[in-house]
Amino acid sequence: MKKRPEITAQTRQNLIDSFWLLYCEKRIENITVKEITQKAGYNRGTFYEYFTDIYDVLEQLEASLIPSLDELPQFTIQNQTMGMPLDMLMKLYEKNSKYYSVLLGDNGDPGFASKLKTSIKPILKQELIQYNDLDPIEFDFILEYILSAMIGIMSYWFRNDKKLPAEDLIRLIQDIMTNGVTNRLLK
């Protein structure tokens, strides 16, 4: 007898949710299949119907959080000095903040930031390429710098309970990108 798809999807999600609750408390290497299945109310065999191991749960969860190009919020650059899709990243981060704040945090997955940058870079490249005539290799390094800074500051903002209003954060980042850090510090 075949299982109904909605039950199968719910079982898989329950296992992911149980994994996530544990992952928020401790590092992945300290999580066991037994803990996940006990928390979810299933047996080990059920776990292995959906995942090969604990790292597979993390991989599948992260894959669901990495937007494809057509899922990324659209952005436009109002002037050539902006150079960053802050509103796009803010929307993406807000939508997934429950996960991003942990995955990009101190006990999260170090590879997740790289996966996120890899997914965002093509749309950023497509939008910014028209505003410059840089060497493609230099341009790639600049994009890496921009994305690393944006992801880093967004993570820091969430870890610090959004102490700075979102509009002020965006204005600060734009000012730093336009005028540089030194100019900002010596104001």
Score class of each variant (00 low, 15 high):
residue 54 I to S: 10
residue 70 D to S: 02
residue 93 Y to E: 08
residue 127 E to I: 08
residue 46 T to N: 12
residue 123 I to T: 08
residue 124 L to H: 06
residue 85 P to Y: 15
residue 95 K to T: 00
residue 51 F to Q: 14
residue 108 G to I: 12
residue 99 Y to T: 00
residue 113 A to V: 10
residue 85 P to E: 15
residue 83 G to S: 11
residue 98 K to I: 12
residue 113 A to D: 12
residue 127 E to G: 03
residue 59 E to M: 09
residue 98 K to D: 12
residue 90 M to Q: 10
residue 66 I to Y: 01
residue 64 S to F: 06
residue 89 L to Y: 06
residue 114 S to I: 02
residue 107 N to P: 05
residue 61 L to W: 10
residue 48 Y to L: 13
residue 69 L to A: 01
residue 109 D to L: 04
residue 123 I to E: 03
residue 129 I to Q: 11
residue 117 K to V: 06
residue 104 L to N: 06
residue 50 Y to H: 15
residue 131 Y to W: 10
residue 84 M to W: 05
residue 122 P to N: 07
residue 50 Y to P: 11
residue 85 P to F: 14
residue 99 Y to E: 08
residue 119 S to L: 07
residue 117 K to D: 09
residue 99 Y to L: 05
residue 108 G to D: 07
residue 68 S to Q: 00
residue 71 E to C: 00
residue 120 I to P: 07
residue 117 K to N: 13
residue 67 P to L: 02
residue 97 S to K: 11
residue 98 K to M: 11
residue 60 Q to C: 10
residue 128 L to Y: 08
residue 103 L to T: 05
residue 46 T to L: 08
residue 116 L to S: 06
residue 111 G to W: 02
residue 92 L to D: 03
residue 100 Y to W: 10
residue 78 Q to S: 09
residue 67 P to R: 00
residue 70 D to R: 01
residue 78 Q to N: 10
residue 64 S to T: 06
residue 57 V to Y: 14
residue 58 L to W: 08
residue 69 L to N: 00
residue 49 E to A: 12
residue 66 I to E: 01
residue 96 N to A: 01
residue 81 T to E: 15
residue 46 T to V: 15
residue 110 P to L: 04
residue 112 F to P: 03
residue 119 S to Y: 05
residue 114 S to R: 09
residue 60 Q to R: 15
residue 102 V to T: 06
residue 69 L to H: 02
residue 95 K to R: 02
residue 128 L to E: 06
residue 52 T to R: 07
residue 49 E to N: 14
residue 114 S to T: 13
residue 106 D to G: 04
residue 113 A to W: 08
residue 121 K to Q: 15
residue 113 A to F: 09
residue 84 M to N: 09
residue 56 D to F: 05
residue 90 M to K: 04
residue 102 V to W: 07
residue 95 K to D: 00
residue 118 T to V: 11
residue 122 P to M: 07
residue 109 D to Q: 02
residue 131 Y to D: 12
residue 89 L to W: 13
residue 106 D to Q: 10
residue 88 M to L: 14
residue 93 Y to H: 13
residue 65 L to N: 02
residue 54 I to W: 11
residue 64 S to R: 08
residue 60 Q to D: 06
residue 95 K to A: 01
residue 87 D to M: 14
residue 117 K to P: 05
residue 126 Q to F: 13
residue 112 F to G: 07
residue 49 E to L: 15
residue 114 S to L: 10
residue 81 T to P: 07
